[in-house]
Write a protein that binds this DNA or RNA. Structure first.
Lengths: 189, 189
DNA sequence: GGTTAAAATGAGTGGCTACTCATGTTGGAA
DNA sequence: TTCCAACATGAGTAGCCACTCATTTTAACC
């Protein structure tokens, strides 16, 4: 599949649109209008639709990027982070991002569910988290009977929660502490 | 404030609209159209807007009802439930409802945040949960240092999560078990 | 510099939806 | 039964937004 080379101005515009759209959707959520993206990027509406024939396509491109960056981060932590804490560090980072960027949570949910077609990248991220989980379990930082899908469920839930009801940093930390305690905990009394 | 008595047909219609709207919004989320509500209720659009001048008013009425029912449930559990488990039982019930009715989570979040003006009922529900928490802590079922706002944060987060990514019953149970373990857990290793 | 296909432009289209209002209908008090 | 205020009706209005297309501009190869 030889990428059809784009003209210089087209390449520039595509990049601008992508960057601006990420910012706009992060601010206003996925319901922000395509016109606003075009205006802020300094191009005409038609140009946006030339590069991304559908709003859905634009959103998918952004989410794919985001998921890939997160996957990289998880990979880096798995490579040279402390096995006992890496999972928690990553967890915290994702929740922080969700609080800032409306896109993350909206679309992580849409991915696990299925309004957007980003199943591939979501699965990849999932397995990267799986690695972090396995390492944490090996060194006893997380109970061995905990499964990946439960961790991912907690991850999306906390991201959603942080986003939708705007947790302040203190509350966020204390709430995550409870979740982490649950992952770590010994047998119930 | 003497309630101005409504005519018989008006009372009937108001009730029908409220019931139907609850069902429609539960199914399709808050973005369902007012026209659909009118159609399913068997009344004209104008009638809906006569009773609820704004879509927001309609949503608020539904959410208020829902919050009051939940508050009642929490109150009943506080009155004659097992102190050690009542909080968890209530937690589970709310998450189950959220999975079924899109409204619950959407609007519990909107309440803690502030797109809808239902702060009063939300606070009432919050204090009812506070009672359940206090009782659970008294009998040692939940760590004493845990605060109400953390519990509420976890509650909204899990409701959101269950709703947005459609947890199946097994996953839901296992995920909640982790959260409960976190609330119960002794000091970390 | 000339040529051309690729790209950009932006006014326009259609569909959806919250909300209005002139007109028709009806419950209920006298 | 009469009468009217309260109520119901539903076609219509206005605004928003994703998406289109005829026209104009421009990058890039000769």
């Amino acid at each position: 599949m030889p990428e059809p080379r784009l003209r210089a101005d087209a390449r520039r515009n595509r990049a601008r649109i992508l960057a601006v759209a990420a910012a706009v959707f992060a601010e206003k959520g996925a319901s922000a209008s395509t016109e606003e993206v075009a205006a802020r990027a300094g191009v005409a509406i038609g140009t946006v639709f030339r590069h991304f024939p559908t709003k859905k396509d634009l959103l998918q491109a952004i989410v794919k990027d985001l998921l890939e960056r997160l996957t990289e981060e998880a990979g880096a932590l798995a490579a040279d982070g402390d096995p006992a804490t890496s999972l928690f560090v990553f967890f915290r980072r994702m929740v922080e991002q969700a609080a800032a960027k409306k896109t993350v949570a909206d679309l992580l949910a849409a991915g696990t569910g299925a309004e957007l077609e980003v199943t591939g990248p979501v699965l990849t991220l999932g397995s990267a988290v799986g690695t972090l989980l396995a390492r944490a379990q090996e060194c006893g930082a997380v109970r061995p009977e905990i499964r990946l899908d439960e961790v991912l469920a907690l991850l999306t839930a906390t991201c959603q929660g942080a986003l939708r009801s705007g947790w302040d940093p203190g509350l966020q930390e204390r709430t995550l502490a409870i979740v982490f305690a649950g992952l770590r905990a010994g047998p119930p009394a």
